[in-house]
Amino acid sequence: MTVPAALGGQLLVARPRLDDPNFHRAVVLLLDHGDEGAFGVVLNRPVPVEVDVVLPEWQDAVTPPSVLFQGGPVGLDGAIGVVTAPPGAVLPPTVDRLVGPFSLVDLDSDPADLAGLVTGIRVFAGHSGWGAGQLEGEIEEGSWFVVPAEASDAVTDDPTTLWRRVLRRQGGDLAIVSTFAEDARLN
């Protein structure tokens, strides 16, 4: 399998046999990918902690469910704000547009500055990261499906079913994979 040069804005969907507990049935939004490595957040790992426990000013601004999400195993003591915005939207300087509809927001800023400008906001504790060539190796060995992301994936109101829904919408063999049992040994 040839790995595309830049995967920013794509989804990594864990193959059923990926048994690393950090990424079992994970859907990762790649926010950056290049020669130096890759950076993203796991979209389907809500944590039973309300956003207001760590960032009270953001509680009413985030897209439901209004909980923190575990973005990955790296930097769990830090928070990352991901926003979705329509193409061409003029965003304040506290927002760093990355790729397509996906941007990072400075969580020290005022969430009111985003009112009416973004279509969704999610807060992640930690992130997923890969060093130079590491992600490409994992894709080559068959750990991940790489599929297009939709803006709604980042802020879905039903994150626990995202793995199945993303695979199902691809059609063909991936739609069949979406029906696999949680424990791959049962397939």
Rank of each mutant, 00 (worst) to 15 (best):
D20G: 05
N22L: 15
G75T: 09
A85W: 07
A85L: 11
G34T: 13
G75Q: 13
D35F: 04
L68R: 05
G81H: 04
A79R: 06
H33N: 03
W58M: 14
V83Q: 01
V28I: 15
W58Q: 10
V82E: 08
P92H: 06
P87F: 11
D60G: 12
P64E: 04
Q70A: 14
D20R: 07
V27G: 03
P48D: 15
L31F: 03
F69N: 10
D52S: 06
G75F: 09
L31S: 01
H24F: 05
F39L: 12
L29S: 14
F23M: 03
P56V: 05
A85S: 14
D60Q: 12
T84D: 09
V90R: 15
T63N: 08
P56M: 05
V74R: 12
V41P: 03
D60I: 02
P92Y: 06
F39P: 04
G37R: 03
V51K: 12
G72M: 13
E50Y: 13
G40H: 11
W58C: 14
G37A: 02
E57T: 10
V41N: 00
G37Q: 00
V42P: 01
G75K: 11
V54H: 04
F69I: 06
L43V: 13
V62F: 02
A89K: 09
V41M: 04
V62I: 03
R45T: 05
P21L: 07
Q70H: 08
N44K: 06
A85D: 08
D32I: 01
G37I: 03
V47K: 09
G88D: 11
N44W: 06
A26K: 04
E57N: 09
A26V: 02
A89Y: 07
V28K: 05
Q59I: 07
G40A: 15
L43D: 13
P48S: 10
P64G: 02
A38H: 08
R45G: 00
V27C: 04
L91T: 10
P73R: 00
L31V: 01
V47G: 07
E36V: 08
E36P: 03
Q70I: 04
S66F: 00
A89S: 13
G71R: 00
P46G: 10
